[in-house]
């Protein structure tokens, strides 16, 4: 699966969520590619008004929050 974290430059929360997701994916052996996108036009196109936006395979799963590692595991696990 593809996980994309949407958040503009300067949003430390967004970078932190990306790192955390990357770590979760590695620790639990999920088959997922984690990327971060900071393009404001794309955020608008995805309808994200609160950062960070968290997308799995072209579907926005949540936005505007920074869940714990445990919660991330659950979210990704539900999707897999």
């Amino acid at each position: 699966m593809n996980i994309t974290i949407y958040g503009p430059e300067g949003c430390s929360n967004c970078s932190q969520l990306k790192e955390k997701t990357q770590a979760v994916v590695e620790e639990h052996g999920f088959e997922a590619e984690v990327t971060k996108d900071g393009d404001a036009a794309k955020l608008a196109a995805k309808g994200i008004m609160s950062t960070p936006g968290f997308e799995i395979d072209d579907e926005i799963v949540f936005s505007g929050s920074n869940p714990s590692k445990e919660e991330l595991v659950e979210i990704i696990d539900d999707w897999a």
Partner: peptide, 15 residues
């Protein structure tokens, strides 16, 4: 108050 979180809200309004 970070402009990085203001801009997506701004765009949502424009949209």
């Amino acid at each position: 108050f970070c402009s990085c979180s203001t801009i997506p809200i701004f765009l949502g309004m424009v949209g």
